[in-house]
Design a protein around this nucleic acid. Structure first.
Lengths: 205, 205
DNA sequence: ACCTGAACACCGTTCAAGT
DNA sequence: ACCTGAACACCGTTCAAGT
């Protein structure tokens, strides 16, 4: 009989913060945030749950913070060297599409992004957005507003999408004299892009 | 000695779904979502935790759904009878301000609003927004987009605010050649209104 | 019909101990 | 330095029982 490597062998990849975050993200994406458990995470890493605390001393809180940073703290690329009104507009559009996609593939961390966790996680993202706008000739004040508006829209829209298509009719009391008509199934891709154009339309350098 | 009413007296207000939701919201607003526990909720209602299941058979899941509905499923008022471009614009602005305030005073439920829970909860809200836009002369298609855009912005912005003012600098790798400058403290009220105008600016009937 | 009490399977985390 | 095992205080929920 060929000797199998011992189950608790030491030659498996050593535990590291990166591997922990990766495994946690895989659990969230595959089974949902509610099923991310220190014990289950330990199982996925073939380690006892308590071993995680050696790399993340603040425990689950620290893990969730790290996940938010990993998913949401992505600065936008600087705009390509050429300038002109279409240049930075296209850059922002591209960033928004990529960022939305990122949020949707890791939809399980969206609730974490909304909580007060990790207050500085989005600072880099907003700063890079402001920079793109500034280079596009938008005045400082307007750029600060536009950066936050754009980020708010993308995050908010991702949240709406994650809730799923709203199949039912309206709820609650109707305002008098108004028959609110429920909307049919929504093409979220198209709607996101249309709303994005609406937000960008107000920006004139 | 005056006889005190028995502690487990029956003359306390009988348990009801309304009272349960009210008490839960009070716990969330006062101590945070993480401290909302069936047992603690029972204590607040002077009842054993298991009594809650008699009114909410699906347990905590149903409670959280009800909380989202209670906080977020508020249709916008119909615009005042007069028409003209400023009328409905003012109506939308007023709604957005009120809705944001509502979300911020119950910031603890924001993570719940983002999760897939209660998919129909926002249907009534979006429908009433579409109706206001339609009455303002905005074509059906544009109205549907604008309603979602506006709602996404308000929810997203509330989320940004709840995370707190971002005191630290940027995080993560900087794009080459760009020194992203961290922003100072933000006046969220002013920023929200400015962003709101940015979103509404693109809407021409 | 409405509420209680005990019990079950699970959490996150601590702490002393192993190698 | 890195991981384990047992233990503690807490969860949500079930189920039989009380009134």
């Amino acid at each position: 009989m060929v000797r199998q490597p011992a189950l608790n062998a030491k030659h498996r990849a050593p535990l590291s913060t990166e591997r922990i975050i990766e495994a946690a993200l895989q659990i969230i994406d595959g089974q949902g945030l509610g099923r991310l458990t220190m014990r289950r995470l330990g199982d996925a890493l073939e380690v006892e749950a308590m071993a995680i605390y050696h790399h993340l001393p603040r425990g689950k809180e620290q893990l969730l913070d790290a996940l938010v940073t990993h998913v949401a703290a992505v600065p936008a690329d600087a705009p390509a060297t050429g300038r002109g009104a279409t240049r930075w507009r296209e850059a922002l559009r591209g960033w928004a599409r990529a960022y939305r996609e990122r949020l949707l593939t890791h939809a399980g961390v969206l609730p974490l992004l909304v909580t007060r966790r990790n207050p500085a996680a989005l600072a880099g993202t907003t700063a890079s957005l402001r920079e793109i706008l500034r280079q596009g000739g938008i005045p400082e004040r307007t750029a600060a507003v536009a950066a936050h508006t754009l980020l708010s829209y993308v995050i908010g829209h991702a949240a709406m999408e994650v809730r799923g298509t709203t199949p039912g009719g309206p709820e609650g009391p109707e305002p008098a004299g108004t028959a609110a008509v429920p909307e049919g199934p929504v093409d979220w891709d198209a709607r996101f892009l249309a709303g994005l154009d609406l937000v960008l339309a107000g920006l004139n350098p």
